[in-house]
Amino acid sequence: MTDAAFATPAHDSARSFRPILDAMANPGKIYSFKPAVQAPAGLGPEAAAVALVLCDFQSPIWLERSLRMAEILQYIRFHTGAPITNSKPEAMFAFIDATRAVPSLTDFPMGTQEYPDRSVTLVIKAERLTANPDVTFKGPGIQSTRGFSAPHLSPAFWSSMIASRTGFPLGMDVIFVGSHQVAALPRSTQISIDGAV
């Protein structure tokens, strides 16, 4: 049987959206995120809540291979109605489980010069997010600099995120979810791996 979504959708989605919005406005800052929702084991309640709050028939979802399990597909289809696509250029949201595999990020839409908003939002599931300065963020939403770390995210991932910044305002935005945590990395944030921003 498919897991239940929000019991009171209007209140629960509003309470779930605010930490996501605050996270996007304060890049790298980790917010408590305990959505009142059941979800398939492979997806987890935090990533499920992001899908329920943001996705519907207007927002095609791409799932990393390890997330293309029958119960996850059914959950997303039943509760959000979002089309599930295997084509990266069509994706408005891409769900990735960093503990399993991080795909190449090159084919996702980055927007156009006139409409940079027509770009993908990556939802990356990690076990635990911390403020360890594995990488250092700087930019809008950050008073000076902010350290961020998520295990399983390789230097190659951060290099490709840094590379995607050269075309600003084109780019991709990331929502990280950990156990009872949410954080975000908008394209406006500068990233440095060695701490020097």
Binding site: L21, D117, D173
Partner: peptide, 9 residues
């Protein structure tokens, strides 16, 4: 969705 993109850019 629009708000998140607005904040990101």
């Amino acid at each position: 969705r629009a708000l998140l993109k607005a904040v990101a850019i």
